[in-house]
Each structure stands twice: as C-alpha cells, then as structure tokens.
C-alpha cells in the first residue's frame, strides 16, 4: 500500500506561500487597523482602552444638518459621511465610464482582430510602461490653465480666455482615473468575450436574431462574468484613491482617501482615520455583496461553465 497524502493537504501546500504572504502582509495590518480604530489618540500617546468613540463620532447626530449637493447630513462631524457618499458616487461613475470604454475595445480585440491579438494586448499595456504618477501629471498638463487643451483651443481661435473648469475639480479626478483604469478593465472583458464559442453566435443568427438582439441575448450575458470582474476591479480601488485627487482634484475634488490620509498624517488622529477606513471598507464590501446578490452571480457562474 502506498500511503497517499490527502488532496486537500497537497492543495494547501501549494497555496501556502500565498496564504503566508496574505496573512503577514494583509490580515495582520488589517487586524492592527481594526484594533487601532477602537483606541484613542491622546496628544502623542495612544490610549489603548477599548472605546467606540471613533465610530460614534462618525454618526453623532446634530440638530443643524449640513447640506451637500442638496442632501442634508444631520451630523456633528459630517465630513467623512459626505466624502464617503461622494467617493462612492464618483467611483460608480468612473466604473460605468470605464466599462463603456473598455467593452468596445475588448469586443474589437476578441471578434475583429485575427492573428495579432498578442500585439494588440501589448499595445494596450504601453501606458503602463510609465509610472502612474507621470500619467497623472500628464493629465495635469493636458487639463491645466495653460495646458494642452486650453492653449490648443486658444491657438485655434475657438477660445479667447482659457477654460478654468478643466482642472482641480471632481471631473478632472474622474477623467484621470478612467484613463488609468480602462486598460485594466479591457483584459478580463476580452478574456470572457474571447472564450465565447463562435457557434453560439452563429446559432443565434440561425435562429433569427438580428445583430443587436444577438448581442443583447447571447454575447452580453456570456461575457457578464468578465465584465462584472472588470467593474469590481475598477470600483473597489478607486473609492479609496487619494493620489489622483491630491494632484488634480483641488479642494472640490477631495475624496475619502484624502481625509484618511489627513487624519493619519496631518491631524495626528490615527484611531479616527482607522475608523473611517474600516467604515469605508465595510461599506464597499456591503455594496459589492448586494450588487452580486442582485445580479445572481452564483447563477451566472454556474452557467458560464
């Protein structure tokens, strides 16, 4: 008899480097963050006694509501709540725009490029050969007061005065982030489109579908797993982004990430910063779960097989 190790053991064996890295680099800091959010900052010292004060500060009601975009926030300290809502809204818009831009590109790659797909994929990654910061600065140059767009339009005689609304606002943040994430979204969508057996499309046509109907009834549902993956890939990290708003957002383009950074580094209130971070994380997790549940992700996944 040959003693065989059970399969699950071999599986965990192969996974163990990843599990160890995840435990050390992710779970531990996360737990530290959770712990931190229950402590209090006292000057330069940390008061390590358990308290919910940080979380309470985020929801403490006030009789005089603060208004943002016409929405009342009846809170004593409304900034985190407002920034969280604002960041979620911006990320949602960014995600929708990214999918709208990436899907046609992926579709083109999957269905209309023959033989040279690898070349096109490499071309898509070219923007990533430069640093993210450089790309953000490039947008600053594009959108700036004396930037490419303004001086271009001026030299064409279309403008006499440069447009001042291009840079340092939420729109600039969104344009920059959309550009940064489109290429990431193309790949998973491309993979799920490329995987679709062409005979499904022919069958749909054979059964009387017009091109549009075939797209809506067959191509779109069959590419849903990749498209949803791409959406999550964009939505989750952009909510907490703080580099882009710092560089191109100006005062009005601030996002929740900027607040967290400020609480940790400038206002010297790490516990409150931790509480805001945790709140943001839980909110994102809840939204994503709700979204996946709504579209019946389990069903989609089982049928995609």
């Amino acid at each position: 008899m040959i003693q065989r190790r059970p399969d699950w053991l071999a599986g965990y064996g192969l996974l163990s480097p990843a599990i160890i890295i995840m435990a050390v680099m992710m779970v531990t800091p996360l737990l530290a963050m959770v712990a931190l959010s229950f402590w209090t900052q006292q000057g330069f010292e940390l008061d390590r006694s358990f308290t919910l004060a940080n979380y309470f500060a985020l929801v403490e009601p006030s009789s005089e509501p603060t208004y943002w975009m016409g929405i009342p926030f009846p809170l004593t300290y409304p900034v985190p709540a407002i920034l969280l809502i604002k960041s979620l809204a911006m990320s949602l818009a960014i995600t929708l725009a990214v999918i709208a831009l990436a899907y046609p590109m992926a579709y083109f790659l999957a269905f209309h490029v023959r033989g040279q797909k690898a070349l096109w994929l490499v071309l898509l990654t070219i923007p990533f050969w430069t640093s993210y910061l450089l790309r953000v600065f490039a947008w600053k140059i594009m959108l700036g007061f004396n930037g490419a767009i303004n001086s271009g339009l001026k030299s064409l005689g279309i403008l006499t005065e440069p447009l001042s609304f291009l840079l340092y606002n939420p729109l600039a943040v969104m344009i920059t982030l959309i550009h940064a994430w489109v290429a990431f979204a193309v790949l998973p969508i491309f993979v799920s489109l490329d995987k679709i057996d062409r005979s499904y499309l022919e069958a749909a046509t054979d059964l009387g579908d017009s091109r549009l109907r075939r797209f809506l009834q067959v191509t779109l549902p069959l590419s849903a797993p990749g498209t949803i993956g791409a959406a999550l890939l964009v939505f989750i990290p952009t909510v907490g982004d703080y580099v882009t708003p710092t560089l191109v957002g100006g005062p009005s383009g601030t996002m929740i990430g900027n607040l967290i950074q400020e609480l940790f580094l400038k206002q010297n209130n790490a516990p409150l910063g931790a509480a805001v971070s945790i709140t943001m994380m839980v909110t994102i997790a809840a939204i994503v779960t709700l979204f996946l549940w709504l579209i019946g992700f389990r069903r989609l996944r089982s049928r995609a097989r």
Partner: peptide
C-alpha cells in the same frame, strides 16, 4: 427558411 444543428450543438450555456 433554414435552421442548423451545429457540430458542437451550440446549446446556449446561460
């Protein structure tokens, strides 16, 4: 006015 049975059957998986 034709319909086809494909070699791979092409049964829509979704």
């Amino acid at each position: 006015p034709t319909n086809m049975v494909f070699q791979s059957y092409a049964i829509f998986p979704h």
